[in-house]
Design a protein around this nucleic acid. Structure first.
Length: 358
DNA sequence: CGGATTTGACCTGCGC
DNA sequence: GCGCAGGTCAAATCCG
């Protein structure tokens, strides 16, 4: 298979009118301006609404394009994999599989079957619930202890069953109780909760504008952009849904060439509307990004000071002062994004600055 | 009260 | 045909 690298370019900042940070297209601040923070806010107040909408439209179009290219990329990889595996000899005796771990077990039908995929998810080992968030709703219909794994296996059907035939099995890995393995069977014939919300907004936009945007070019309608941005900012499940959506779309894609792609999820103030996220090619770039955010804030607070200095404790205080902060870091070994909390970010920041100092 | 989960019983396929 | 193991059903129970 061809080694691949996919850039998501999810530099969506849908919060431009209320957000106290501004992220440039590449995820870093524009350093060459001498504007104070207050002045910038004033400037932005007079910005024409249509300009704001235009920016949002461009950003969402970029996300849309990335999603489309990623989808076709995933499709191609899946096809390649299926072609490759279908050409290998099959039929293996049951005894052969029993000697292997439970997750190497092949079902009665010859494996692989089109539509079966396996996802590894890192979880808290003390958390015994077999729940894997993937953006879809499931109904548990059984649980069994299997012969070669002391951890029980949970059986789920898509909550849209029998209309949707998808099933999944979730079981803790026999090798690592900090990892659960979800096996999916079949393809959903409906949208995930996130996609459903986006579609509802599209319909709303259609009612308001009288124009149909679905089934035509992916250029998003202005009203849709506004509605979608509002939806993302207001939804209390924003962070988890976003993480789930990213996880579902990315977990099966090979990232041979990329470094540890990192997504910073941030809510600067108690106002939910300030929620935003930024993506970086590596952890260290993400740390630089957070530093840049802090430096910008310092600059805004001290507009007359030419040189601003700060120590790591100041940076920690800034990190602790944010209403919410977490990082999703791509893990090549399990081909999925793993969530990391504020403490992890502090530790990584310390390592990063230490490295820069030497 | 209704939807989700639990859990023992039952079904099915496979190997001997 | 029997036993075993994985998968599914459905009544009981839980919980918001």
């Amino acid at each position: 298979m061809v080694a691949t690298s996919v850039s998501l370019d999810l530099n969506l900042n849908p919060l431009s009118t209320t957000d106290d940070t501004t992220v440039m297209e590449d995820g870093f601040y524009d350093d060459d301006d001498d504007h104070s923070f207050e002045k910038e806010v004033d400037d932005r107040r007079v910005l024409d609404l249509s300009d704001e909408n235009k920016k949002l439209k461009e950003l969402l179009s970029a996300v849309w394009d990335s999603y489309n290219s990623l989808s076709s990329h995933v499709k191609k990889i899946t096809q390649d994999k299926e072609e490759m595996e279908s050409s290998t000899p099959k039929k293996r005796k049951r005894d052969d599989t029993v000697q292997q771990s439970s997750w190497n077990y092949r079902p009665k039908e010859d494996f692989p079957i089109s539509g079966i995929k396996r996802v590894y998810v890192k979880v808290d080992p003390s958390d015994k619930s077999l729940v894997v968030k993937d953006g879809y709703q499931w109904r548990k219909y059984g649980q069994k202890v299997t012969r070669d794994n002391p951890s029980p296996r949970a059986y789920y059907k898509c909550s849209f069953a029998p209309i949707c035939p998808v099933k999944k099995k979730v079981q803790r890995s026999i090798d690592d109780d900090g990892v659960v393995v979800a096996t999916y069977e079949g393809e959903h014939n409906h949208r995930s909760t996130m996609q459903e919300a986006a579609h509802a907004l599209a319909n709303e936009a259609e009612i308001l504008t009288g124009e149909r945007w679905l089934n035509k070019s992916p250029k998003l309608d202005q009203v849709l952009v506004e509605q979608m941005a509002n939806y993302l900012c207001k939804d209390p499940k924003f962070t988890s849904d976003l993480a789930a959506a990213i996880f579902t779309k990315i977990s099966e894609v090979d990232f041979f060439k990329s470094s540890r792609h990192t997504i910073i999820l941030m809510q600067p103030s108690q106002n939910r509307a300030t929620r935003t996220f930024m993506d970086y090619e590596s952890i260290s770039q993400a740390m630089d990004g957070i530093c840049a955010l802090y430096e910008r804030k310092l600059k805004a607070l001290n507009p007359v000071m030419r040189n601003i200095t700060y120590d790591i404790q100041d940076l920690y205080n800034y990190i602790d002062g944010l209403a919410d902060l977490s990082a999703l870091v791509y893990d090549h070994s399990i081909q999925a994004y793993l969530p990391n909390d504020r403490e992890w970010i502090r530790n990584r920041m310390f390592r990063h600055l230490n490295k820069l100092a030497h």
